[in-house]
Design a protein around this nucleic acid. Structure first.
Length: 196
DNA sequence: CGCATTTGACCGGCGC
DNA sequence: GCGCCGGTCAAATGCG
């Protein structure tokens, strides 16, 4: 737990993904949408603190708007996430360190906001975003002990694009089969059409 | 009944 | 100090 990272900023994986139009895939679990768009991020990018499997997207400079949205966050975020509840409550103890978790974001061209990445998420908040007509949703991985969070935001500047940001590393494997044909298919759709 | 989502309150940081 | 902002909590509600 000491091998810290030197990058405190956020990595931006800007890939424009054109997902195939499959029909609803897994209705019950995953926050999957009915239109059948899905993105697989299931196994492991291995690299660092985040597991980003099939995401081979290249790292590229974010577009003006996107960058704006996330970069400002980086610093403030950590504080809120850690210390928060120590105020009056007696429940949580903000004992955790002040880790500044790196975040990874990527954008997708999709009709649905929630992409099926193979993990189970519980929504814990939603807020309006300045200059944006779409709200941003906050999710937390439901696996016990796993602190991974993610937020989803659709850009109003181009409502066909959804930005998903991951924060933290999963401490458990994906809950779904990874050899699923469809998933592989989807992974393949990840890199091709790049934004710039 | 056991989950997940909804939604307004609340919190810490920051700029003025 | 106050108000805004991004983020989170938690009670109520919804749903299978």
């Amino acid at each position: 737990m000491d091998h810290q990272h030197h990058h405190q900023g956020m990595h931006f994986l800007g890939s424009l993904v054109q997902t195939p139009a499959l029909s609803s895939i897994s209705p019950n679990n995953e926050i999957l949408a009915s239109s059948g768009y899905r993105l697989n991020i299931g196994d492991a990018c291995s690299s660092r603190e985040n597991g980003f499997p099939g995401l081979k997207a290249q790292i590229k400079g974010p577009t003006a708007q996107v960058k704006d949205i996330f970069e400002s966050r980086t610093t403030t975020v950590a504080a809120a996430a850690n210390e928060v509840k120590s105020g009056t409550g007696s429940k949580r103890k903000g004992d955790q360190k002040k880790t500044r978790k790196p975040r990874f974001a990527f954008q997708t061209r999709s009709q649905v906001d929630i992409l099926d990445d193979g993990y189970r998420w519980r929504k814990y908040g939603q807020k309006g975003v300045k200059n944006n007509k779409f709200p941003r949703s906050y999710y937390r991985c439901t696996h016990p002990g796993c602190n991974v969070k993610k937020q989803v935001q659709r850009l109003s500047v181009d409502e066909g694009i959804v930005v998903t940001t991951y924060e933290g590393m999963h401490i458990h494997p994906t809950e779904k089969n990874n050899d699923n044909f469809e998933q592989i298919l989807n992974q393949m759709h990840i890199y091709p059409p790049l934004l710039m």
